[in-house]
């Protein structure tokens, strides 16, 4: 079998179930929430709503993501699966104010976090 076939087969992984959705808002050049908890080990979908009239860019080197969100607009990012840990992100157009951190929690801590929020 040619090496190209082997390389392609290794990349042709199945598409998994719909990822869990999280929401992040940008208002007055600030991220809300500025600390976002997500489960580690699974892909998530992050909907970023920019409520400012000016554009903003969600950027994170540790998450390997950058995405421009036009003013009064929204964008969807697909992130992970992540190792447990803290991932800093910021707004490239307003880096002094638009700062945040995404915290990926291991399974047990994530379940605990959900229960705490439900109560």
């Amino acid at each position: 079998m040619p090496w190209q076939h082997i390389a392609l087969m290794s990349l042709a992984l199945p598409v998994l179930a719909e990822p869990m959705l999280f929401e992040l808002q940008i208002k007055d050049h600030l991220f809300h929430p500025s600390v976002l908890y997500v489960p580690a080990g699974e892909k998530i979908k992050l909907l970023v709503l920019n409520q400012d009239p000016s554009p903003e860019e969600f950027e994170s080197f540790s998450l390997n993501r950058e995405k421009v969100i036009l003013g009064n607009s929204k964008a969807t990012l697909f992130i992970g699966p992540l190792q447990p840990g803290r991932y800093h992100f910021f707004g490239e157009y307003n880096p002094d104010s638009a700062q945040g951190v995404l915290i990926a929690l291991p399974e047990a801590q994530w379940q605990q976090h959900r229960e705490d929020n439900a109560n």
């Binding site: 990349l11 042709a12 992984l13 199945p14 598409v15 892909k43 390997n64 993501r65 995405k67 969807t76 990012l77 697909f78 992130i79 992970g80």
Partner: peptide, 8 residues
């Protein structure tokens, strides 16, 4: 495709 949406 959007970054991270599919396997590549």
């Amino acid at each position: 495709t959007e970054q991270g949406q599919y396997s590549a």
